[in-house]
């Protein structure tokens, strides 16, 4: 069994941080009628995001603080255009922090049943069903074989 060392600081977000992260999720991956998928701010998906932050809690809080700075106040309370502008500034100026927000959102969005089905995937883990992979035709290697050895003799 693998024991996990507790992370530094609580993984929970303050209410304002949670609202800000939800707005970021909506800006990042909006709902789409065309693809019949919810946005990343969907109740179930966002609850999964918050629940799964884990090792990234400190980095997420740092990213949200930076967003507040860029927005000139609470990011969550700004208008949509201001939020979009601050998010773009974060991505342009601090890619590492932006990548943390992408990671925590994408890790949960792209495992939601509705999203999986929209992508043509069965909503299941890889095991135990596994997947099919075409065997392929090993005669493709005939030209390689015909060219002969390329390894180098060593004295």
């Amino acid at each position: 069994m693998i024991d996990t060392v507790p992370m530094t600081g609580p993984a929970h977000l303050q209410d304002a941080q949670r609202r800000a992260l939800r707005r970021v999720a909506a800006l990042m991956i909006p709902a789409s009628d065309a693809h019949r998928v919810p946005g990343a701010d969907d109740d179930a998906i966002f609850a999964d995001v918050v629940r799964s932050i884990g090792r990234d809690a400190d980095a997420v809080r740092a990213a949200l603080r930076r967003l507040d700075e860029l927005a000139g106040g609470d990011f969550a309370d700004r208008g949509q255009d201001e939020q979009r502008c601050a998010a773009q500034q974060l991505r342009d100026g601090d890619a590492a922090l932006a990548a943390v927000l992408v990671a925590v959102v994408a890790r949960c969005y792209y495992r939601d049943d509705r999203v999986m089905r929209s992508l043509g995937m069965e909503p299941r883990p890889p095991f135990p069903g596994g997947f099919d992979v075409e065997q392929g035709d090993l005669s493709l290697l005939d030209p390689v074989r015909a060219r002969g050895r390329i390894w180098r003799e060593a004295p």
Partner: peptide, 12 residues
């Protein structure tokens, strides 16, 4: 790969 969080756990 036993779970739906199979990709997330490679970062965890």
């Amino acid at each position: 790969s036993n779970g739906r969080d199979w990709e997330a756990r490679q970062f965890d």
